[in-house]
């Protein structure tokens, strides 16, 4: 009798578990990279940005510049202004190049091109939004501090040997820009 009861208990537990497992859990994404970068960039963060930004933040002048700003925010957080414009300029250069897709979204979401797209960094909230937006607009307008670069990488962390074979155009902040 007791044994049978035990069995039933276990069965109930299992059924409950089965139900539980069907509930969609939101899986927390590990975010090691973000915290690492945040720590280094907090020093340059300007608390006054938010106030001056609040009215303009909701204004959007075409999704392309917004997307550009997102990539810059994700790829070049804590970089100098020039470095941020440069990341935007690489994307614009790719749009102009025949070897890459012809739209900003196409370039940004091309498989395996930007680590920030792969690991979801691109959806992170803005940090120092005013500066990032200015940088995005500057790149969108055609300023190109990279002198025509199509690639950029962090020389310290990149594992792709192929990138090292590309002629380096310039180094800005932690990024190396190459053609």
């Amino acid at each position: 009798m007791k044994k049978a009861l035990k069995r039933i208990n276990v069965m109930i537990v299992l059924v409950v578990l089965l139900f539980l497992s069907y509930i969609e859990f939101e899986i927390p994404v590990l975010d090691v990279y973000a915290t690492k970068v945040d720590a280094s960039s907090t020093s340059s963060k300007n608390p006054t940005d938010q106030s001056s930004q609040s009215d303009k933040g909701s204004e959007s002048d075409g999704g392309s510049v917004d997307l550009l700003a997102r990539v810059i925010n994700a790829e070049a957080r804590g970089e100098p202004y020039l470095g941020q414009v440069a990341v935007g300029a690489v994307i614009m250069n790719r749009v102009k190049s025949a070897e890459f897709p012809n739209t900003i979204a196409g370039v940004v979401y091309q498989k395996g091109q930007f680590s920030s797209v792969k690991d979801g960094q691109i959806n992170k909230p803005f940090e120092n939004e005013a500066q990032v937006r200015k940088a995005a607009q500057e790149a969108y307008n055609g300023s190109d501090p990279t002198n025509g670069a199509l690639f950029f990488y962090n020389a310290k962390t990149t594992t792709s040997k192929w990138l090292f074979t590309r002629p380096t155009v310039k180094v800005i902040g932690r990024h190396t820009f190459a053609k």
Binding site: F100, P101, G106, Q110, K111, G112, W162
Partner: peptide, 12 residues
């Protein structure tokens, strides 16, 4: 071209 770009093939 658009379809080519959406393949997970090395850019290179």
């Amino acid at each position: 071209k658009e379809n080519l770009a959406s393949l997970p093939v090395d850019q290179n």
